[in-house]
Amino acid sequence: MPSTENKGLTKRLSCELSAAWAIAKKDMRIYYFKPNIIVSGLFFPLFMFLAFAIGKNTPPGNLIPGLISITLLFSASSIEPVSIPIERRVKTFERLLSAPISLYSLVTGESLSGFLYSLGIACLPLAIGVIVFGTPILNVPILIISMALTAFCFATLGTLFAAYPTENVGEVMSILNTVRLPLIFISGVFIPISAMPKIGQQIALVSPLTYGNDMIECAYTGKSLFPPLLDVLALVIFILIFQITANYLYKKFNE
């Protein structure tokens, strides 16, 4: 009977979502205020940005979209690379792996906490832009969509890197930083993509930050390299790739 099947499927989905939410809540309670997460998610992007922005003749208000982009990148991808190795060490991760939930829910739940953390942190540069510099936002819905998608994309990236089977937070962070740091320079945050050499422009296409930053710029200035719909599509594709790869790696490394 299709209706019974649908009910079963709806119940299953609701169970999976509530388990993912429970994992996210647990991470929020335990990890949001850990010093290494605050440093990595808040101070690191801020100082990184100041290092490149100070001395330039650009008005500070114009730097806000870039600051939001790298805040989203660093804060969203900072929770899981800390929480998962710690949980492997204290064996609580085993609890999640043996629970009656799918690996997709586990990965989603883990990413959800990074996503929410990142949105919260990114509100700081957003508020500074509005209150301190009076930076106008031309398209609020695009800004919300771009921030949400970028945050979720990088939270999933963090979960993906945390699949690396180690109990050492430093190891995951080192590997992750070899990817995160170059992303800042090839994604149009500091140097406009149009001003990059041809090879740089081609590399920029494989960076999710390119599309997130492009869409955030569009919300602030109305100008963008790609149409917003293409940015959305690219970010969704990156999320799916990260999610599927994370799922595969968690399964593989548990063997």
Binding site: S18, A19, W21, A22, I23, K25, K26, R29, I30, V90, K91, T92, E94, R95, L96, A99, P100, I101
Partner: peptide
């Protein structure tokens, strides 16, 4: 393998939500 940073009650609730 309990969560040291959660209370006993929160540990129980989390386990219940997972199941």
């Amino acid at each position: 393998n309990v969560y040291d940073d959660l209370t006993a009650w929160q540990n129980m609730m989390f386990s219940a939500e997972l199941y």
